[in-house]
Design a protein around this nucleic acid. Structure first.
Length: 335
DNA sequence: TTCCAGTCAATATG
DNA sequence: CATATTGACTGGAA
């Protein structure tokens, strides 16, 4: 009983196939998402996630041990997601809400960049140029209240995109870690209490590229008792935000527990971006599936899309205001 | 209930 | 070390 899956989605995430020769399945090279903005010399084609329909997707489960969720691949051979939505529906029709900023592709491009690991890695161009964030960017005045640009009318709750869900999010595979760190992805979601990785992280050199992200965060993550804690556990406490900033910083901060920010693995990031590119607002079911397949929490996935939507917009506005033509360069002109 | 804007703070990068 | 990036959290609104 597999509801229609989004073919586009599946094809969407193609390109990563090469990572796993063993699984080498003819991926639909038809549309590797990112190619458009891929930086020269770096086709992301090689670094993509493969969400092909009906592909065995053991990788994730293997590399990203879901804390409590079983990432059963929705596909052949793999059991249906346990609680899950075998029948995902809700994937917006591909290309549905394309409210991407013209430059958004840069984002994808970045996401698609090959792992920096040892390879010639192009300097990752800043995606959301000007990345603003909470920290007042020295060069960037606080963004004025964003008034949604006409061009990107966010269909509030567009009733969900009646789309199909890519059964896709299934065969996500971790690119071969060039450095030889197999299964770094696992770090993305360290099993609760997986302190073991701490050592690894410690050993790893600090600056690793996205590809290494997983490792990068491990150290702290482990320290905090596992990323699993993220989200729920940390709810509130460590996150001094908005109004809560007043609270004493040291107070609820469980002493030694420094909250570590989750850093998506290359695979996760790419997959998410790829999906985002197709569907800015995946349905809940879809998000759940994605989360399961990627070994992330639903909140995380949800946050990702939320941030992506917002940031892609900001980026866009930014470009516009900068006088940049919307089709501006994928790279941040400013700065 | 979900989404968003505003923010924070951990990370990544130069 | 300074700055940029980005995942996450909060309160409020729809």
């Amino acid at each position: 009983a597999r509801p229609a899956m989004v073919p586009s989605m599946a094809s969407l995430l193609d390109g990563a196939a090469e990572y796993r020769p063993e699984l080498s399945i003819p991926l639909h090279h038809a549309m590797s998402v990112p190619c458009e903005a891929s930086p020269p010399g770096m086709g992301m084609s090689g670094t993509y996630t493969t969400l092909t329909p009906l592909q065995p997707l053991p990788p994730i489960s293997a590399e990203v041990p879901p804390v409590g969720q079983s990432l059963s691949p929705l596909g052949n051979g793999l059991g249906p997601l346990p609680g899950a939505q075998q029948g995902l529906h809700g994937y917006g029709p591909p290309g549905h809400d394309k409210m991407l900023s013209p430059n958004f592709e840069a984002m994808l491009a970045r996401a698609e960049q090959p792992l920096p690991r040892g390879l010639a890695t192009p300097p990752a161009p800043p995606l959301f140029c000007g990345g603003r964030g909470g920290q007042r960017p020295p060069h960037r005045p606080p963004l004025p209240p964003l008034h949604r640009p006409p061009a990107a009318p966010t269909p509030r709750r567009s009733g969900a995109h009646p789309g199909e869900l890519p059964r896709a999010v299934r065969a996500v595979r971790e690119p071969p870690q060039r450095g030889g760190c197999p299964g770094v992805a696992a770090a993305a979601r360290p099993p609760v209490g997986s302190a073991g990785r701490a050592g690894l992280a410690a050993a790893s050199p600090p600056r690793c590229g996205y590809g290494d992200t997983a490792l990068t965060r491990v150290g702290r993550t482990a320290a905090r008792g596992g990323a699993g804690a993220r989200g729920s556990a940390l709810t509130g406490e460590m996150r001094g935000s908005c109004k809560r900033k007043e609270q004493e910083p040291s107070k609820e901060r469980n002493n030694s527990q420094k909250k570590s920010r989750l850093v998506f693995t290359d695979l996760q990031r790419r997959t998410l971006f790829a999906i985002f590119k197709e569907n800015k607002r995946p349905s809940k079911e879809m998000q759940m599936t994605i989360s399961q397949q990627l070994g992330l929490e639903l909140n995380t996935v949800s946050n990702f899309f939320m941030n992506a939507r917002r940031r892609s917009l900001e980026k866009w506005q930014d470009d516009l205001s900068s006088g940049g033509s919307s089709s501006a360069p994928s790279t941040c002109p400013k700065a």
